[in-house]
Nucleic acid binder design. Structure first.
Ligand SMILES: NC(=O)c1ccc[n+]([C@@H]2O[C@H](COP(=O)([O-])OP(=O)(O)OC[C@H]3O[C@@H](n4cnc5c(N)ncnc54)[C@H](O)[C@@H]3O)[C@@H](O)[C@H]2O)c1
Ligand SMILES: NC(=O)c1ccc[n+]([C@@H]2O[C@H](COP(=O)([O-])OP(=O)(O)OC[C@H]3O[C@@H](n4cnc5c(N)ncnc54)[C@H](O)[C@@H]3O)[C@@H](O)[C@H]2O)c1
Lengths: 210, 210
DNA sequence: TGAGCAATGTGAAAAAAATAACAGTTGTTT
DNA sequence: AAACAACTGTTATTTTTTTCACATTGCTCA
């Protein structure tokens, strides 16, 4: 319906921005105008209009020279580009303070990424639901991950077990990890690893506000 | 002692990596060898040796051609480069699930970034300590931030109040923000803003593990 | 109808970042 | 003490990402 899936290699930065465009525009959908200009979108996200236009060009979206980009088409093509047709299942591993905060947050957020399982070792959490997500014993990870076709894990376990847990997850078929544990994980290049490192971010901020 | 402060403009990526080198080597300090090779450091962080050498070159650190880089000197120069002499004070704003997790985490982490105040509107939290950090009424933000010379804020308030809270923080003298609220903040270019956006990160991971 | 404006689409240039290549150094070995 | 090995330091090259610049298009209005 919205043009074909462009699976030519997209720059990582472009993918990030596409996700942001969509999330922003999801809120506009239906309400306001049917169209949006590159400079408007750029302004809302602190980017340049050229950058927006180039990103949209890369996914084969073409706007109207007078009205700008059709918002529905834009959301549609971004979806065709970055979503998987069969949906993306995500597991959260380690249901502590941080894990619970993340579960609550993602549940509220409107997203295509479905957290379908959480894992812990704590008997009090296992076999309960937290934020409507079923919690399992980490020992069942292999089966559950296979059964539910989970490919992505959010890692919020204590640092001591980060490496061993990662090994288990990779053996279970996980292909991408969002790592909150500030422990360096040594994974093969075909695993997509993204680290969230607050300390590094704070130090970076500290340096640049000098 | 460890060479002079190089305040020539460093690339953001380099600053990030410097922070990581230091954190990694803090653990090595005293224990193992006195020196480390670029390829060792690179291996530990999934970088290339050339990148490590270039980063260290940029901060004026010179290694021994046979033994590699002196770990103490390395930690020292990184400190001279990215730390502020007077220390960096940080505030956490919004002591909810996420805020508490972050407070607990940073407290445990060995870092030069000191969280010296937290703010909320909840009467039950105001005037208590959480993870040894004193909690204040957000209405007192202006005074407290001035008094304690805080320049950096971690923003973990509900999305609805993210923009207004940011305005208040900027008026109070905050220069850098680590934003967890997935709300787009429109700040002037002299404010260093870093967004942590889980949804975008997950979608990015989802795209690249295809 | 056609001049004018305000967008888009995109090649070209520039800037930023990563990688490669290699000469120079330092110790070791024979 | 000469040849060798294994590093570093740095220049050059490549790749990636952003910005510039401008021709083209679609609409409006006189
Ligand atoms: N990057 C950041 O910004 C940031 C912020 C806060 C915390 N953290 C890190 O995130 C992690 C979690 O932090 P937290 O405050 O939620 O800690 P927490 O102790 O509250 O939670 C850890 C959870 O993991 C569970 N767990 C322990 N071993 C496990 C295992 N083998 N398999 C599965 N689950 C297991 C525990 O039962 C607990 O529920 C820590 O590594 C912490 O350092 C990072
Ligand atoms: N980026 C992420 O990965 C991520 C993950 C989880 C949550 N979040 C976001 O982080 C924020 C906090 O999440 P949470 O789960 O901790 O929410 P929460 O509701 O548990 O906590 C919010 C806290 O802010 C306080 N607060 C409300 N208004 C305030 C004000 N004007 N000034 C100061 N404090 C105020 C509340 O009293 C509460 O303590 C939300 O915006 C959420 O969307 C982001």
């Amino acid at each position: 319906m919205f043009g074909q899936i462009m699976n030519t290699k997209l720059p990582p930065r472009t993918v990030e921005r596409l996700s942001k465009y969509r999330r922003l525009l999801d809120k506009y959908k239906g309400l306001d105008e049917a169209h949006i200009y590159s400079h408007k979108l750029a302004g809302l996200l602190n980017l340049t209009p050229e950058q927006v236009r180039r990103d949209l060009m890369l996914i084969g979206l073409t706007g109207n020279h007078r009205k700008g980009y059709n918002i529905k088409a834009l959301i549609g093509i971004i979806g065709n580009t970055i979503d998987r047709q069969e949906g993306q299942q995500v597991a959260l591993v380690g249901i502590g303070n941080l894990g619970k905060a993340v579960l609550g947050f993602i549940r509220k957020a409107e997203t295509r990424m479905n957290i379908v399982a959480a894992f812990d070792i704590d008997r009090n959490k296992i076999n309960t639901h937290i934020a409507h997500v079923p919690c399992f014993d980490i020992q069942e990870a292999k089966q559950v991950i296979r059964e539910k076709n989970i490919r992505i894990a959010i890692l919020t376990v204590p640092p001591e077990v980060a490496v061993s847990t990662t090994t288990l997850l990779l053996q279970s078929g996980i292909r991408g990890i969002l790592n909150f544990t500030s422990v360096h994980l040594d994974v093969s290049p075909d695993i997509y690893l993204k680290d969230y490192d607050i300390i590094t971010s704070l130090e970076e901020i500290g340096f640049f506000i000098k």
